[in-house]
Design a protein around this nucleic acid. Structure first.
Lengths: 199, 199
DNA sequence: ATCGTTGGCTAAGTGTATTAGCTTTACGGC
DNA sequence: GCCGTAAAGCTAATACACTTAGCCAACGAT
């Protein structure tokens, strides 16, 4: 029985490819093992189990996404940067439908590469928002808002949640344009929010 | 062996309760059967299988959510309606952490109640946006934007995606305030988008 | 009272994840 | 070049989850 010569990286990479083909939920150790030409239990020599594989896949996908988000924003600012980053985000989800859901897993604190990837991804968003003059609490709120909008749109789209015939690209760009407007008036808006909290 | 006296409704209702307790992903036919005091295969007398149960649960949760969204918006308009509806949305997700994910399943066209529930939910959002003067394509875009923002925020929050200590309620209200600003300037913004599409 | 429908059951089969323990390959040191 | 060992593969067995088949008893209508 000749050895296949696997290691953790090859296993996780192949898991990513398989997930993109069959879907994140359909990624199974059995399918992965057969794809790699080994028996299922052999995978445990490289990965602690199904959950650990999902975590490693998350680290991989998050790192890829962070790199692409950063690349999209470099050399641009404000609206230009926001549009470029938003397009890169959705584009990644389209090109990697199986990896994208993995990026939503919260980084494992015991995996430095995973943590670093998550920080890079959030950092890329943070950087764009700094271009709008947003800092401190404002930038935290804005980061959450942007992540929510991007992830929400992409995941609804992937789930087939947009039934009407209206062009989905158009709706996405309109959403981004709306966020641009919101971020431009963010501190002013915040004043209104604070004010509304007072009785 | 005395009969328990189940029917589809009691099974689905109990599934909803169980999902809220243990989580949507942890909802299992085995756990549901034991909770109902019945052997697992007996459930098949009331539900076609695990997937059909998930679909029925989706119909139930979507109907509940639609009712609460509608109730929140009645008698209000624009920013008031938007805030009330957004709060109701997130509140439902908090009160029913196991049902909420079920609402994201696309309605089954062969289940009239499911379809009706989905239409009511989207209709409630549509109605609020009409208060902003948005119609036709604009309202489709805006509905998608609002759904994306609400779902994205709630699902990131549920996943534990917001690590920083900044108050999450504040961030949510800020997001809603930002959407209010965006919707007020929606048609104007749309002109910019259309313009950007030209070379 | 009985007959048919229906709601429950047990048994059995499939697919996935996991653990235990064995075998053999490949490599580094001598 | 040989050999010892760590690691990479394997088979076997366990634990769940979902599903189907087929049996039996309870309940309602006649």
């Amino acid at each position: 029985m000749p050895r296949v010569g696997l290691n953790q990286q090859t296993v996780v990479r192949e898991a990513a490819r398989l997930a993109d083909e069959v879907g994140y939920q359909q990624l199974t150790l059995a399918a992965l093992a057969s794809r790699l030409g080994v028996a299922l239990p052999s995978l445990y020599k490289h990965v602690r189990g199904a959950d650990a594989l999902a975590q490693k896949l998350s680290a991989l996908a998050t790192a890829e996404l962070a790199t692409e988000l950063t690349a999209a924003a470099v050399g641009r600012s404000c609206g230009d940067a926001l549009r470029a980053m938003a397009d890169a985000y959705r584009d990644y989800a389209h090109r990697h439908p199986g990896r994208y859901p993995a990026t939503q897993r919260v980084p494992d604190p015991t995996d430095p590469q995973h943590v670093e990837a998550g920080e890079r991804a959030v950092g890329a968003i943070f950087a764009v928002l700094r271009g709008y003059g947003l800092t401190d609490d404002d930038s935290v709120d804005a980061t959450r808002a942007l992540r929510s909008a991007l992830h929400g749109f992409v995941s609804l789209e992937a789930a087939g949640g947009f039934g009407l015939p209206r062009d989905v690209d158009r709706s996405y760009h309109q959403l981004i344009a709306g966020l641009d407007v919101a971020f431009r008036s963010w501190p002013r808006v915040r004043g209104i929010v604070d004010q509304a909290d007072q009785p």
